[in-house]
Design a protein around this nucleic acid. Structure first.
Length: 272
DNA sequence: CTCAGCTCCTGCGGGC
DNA sequence: TGCCCGCAGGAGCTGA
């Protein structure tokens, strides 16, 4: 399900429902998701208060009063319900001291949860090698240009790599490349600096617009309050195979090709 | 090291 | 109607 805009939407929903609240108890319906839950996870979460919830790329990090941080990745189909929706795909249920219930459901179970000491959070194996935040100061033209120069793979694959930039996925890479007028098939090291600069700006604007729309709901994605995202109505290329390009003055048709096993959507006429 | 392919899992929509 | 196939927002692992 989730790329950065969807994760950020979920984070904001959870922030309102969880920060400052004490977790009374946690029930686990299975022993893990993609990986087993950490040892004694339910016991370690019981009785602690959520201090803040932040985000690193597609990971959500909930700092807890006991000195640990709960790390959450939503995989392809994970999501939270602050109304406590409970069904056969609900794997974790958090009961708060105020009596409310927040549940995590994830049909495909590609998500993950782990606990790590807050002061060592950046050393966690899954977080240590993440690249800069695309909406942060560390992601800029010279940085991306230097990274692209070192790689011969298609620019689409490079942008999907979380070590280069953390948070982009299949939808927003396709949309950003369309916005920038760059072909996803183009070799990373063969894009001139001014075009890379433009790409950085396009990544930022696409992500900002998607966050403002509450993310994209293709099938599973819901905000924690149950609302749909609506950025899927603004896609320029994603999921639009054989439809006409939306760029004013371009008569091209959107194509779909497979790159590294993932569908890539682009306009062959105006993306170079 | 870089990179493409495989893998985990369930559900849905299209074609026959 | 029912079955089979392809495909789906991720990313760690493997082997060339």
């Amino acid at each position: 399900m989730p790329e950065l805009p969807e994760v950020e939407t979920v984070r904001r929903g959870l922030e309102g429902a969880l920060v400052g609240k004490e977790i009374a108890s946690v029930s686990l319906r299975r022993s893990g998701l993609r990986w087993p839950f950490p040892v004694r996870m339910a016991e370690r979460l019981a009785g602690v208060t959520v201090l803040r919830i932040h985000r690193l790329g597609k990971y959500m990090l909930a700092d807890l009063s006991g000195g640990e941080t709960l790390i959450i990745h939503l995989g392809m189909s994970g999501g939270f319900s602050i109304a406590g929706v409970d069904d056969p795909h609900t794997h974790v249920s958090f009961r708060l001291r105020d009596g409310s219930r927040i549940t995590y459901r994830d049909p495909r179970r590609f998500g993950m949860m782990d606990l790590e000491s807050t002061d060592r959070i950046n050393q966690h194996p899954l977080l240590a090698s993440l690249g800069p935040e695309p909406l942060g100061n560390g992601f800029h033209g010279p940085y991306l240009h230097a990274q692209l120069k070192m790689r011969r793979s298609p620019v689409k694959s490079t942008l999907m790599n979380q070590r280069i930039v953390a948070g982009l996925g299949n939808i927003y890479v396709c949309e950003s490349l369309w916005q920038a007028g760059i072909s996803p098939l183009r070799r990373s090291d063969r894009i001139a600096a001014p075009r890379v600069q433009r790409l950085v700006e396009c990544v930022r604007s696409v992500l900002h617009e998607a966050i403002a729309a509450g993310g994209s709901t293709l099938r599973d994605h819901r905000q924690p309050d149950g609302e749909f995202g609506c950025f899927q109505h603004d896609f320029s290329v994603y999921g639009r195979e054989s439809e006409t390009c939306r760029r004013p003055g371009c008569a091209g048709m959107v194509r779909r090709v497979i790159q590294s096993g993932r569908s890539t959507f682009y306009c062959g006429a105006c993306q170079r």
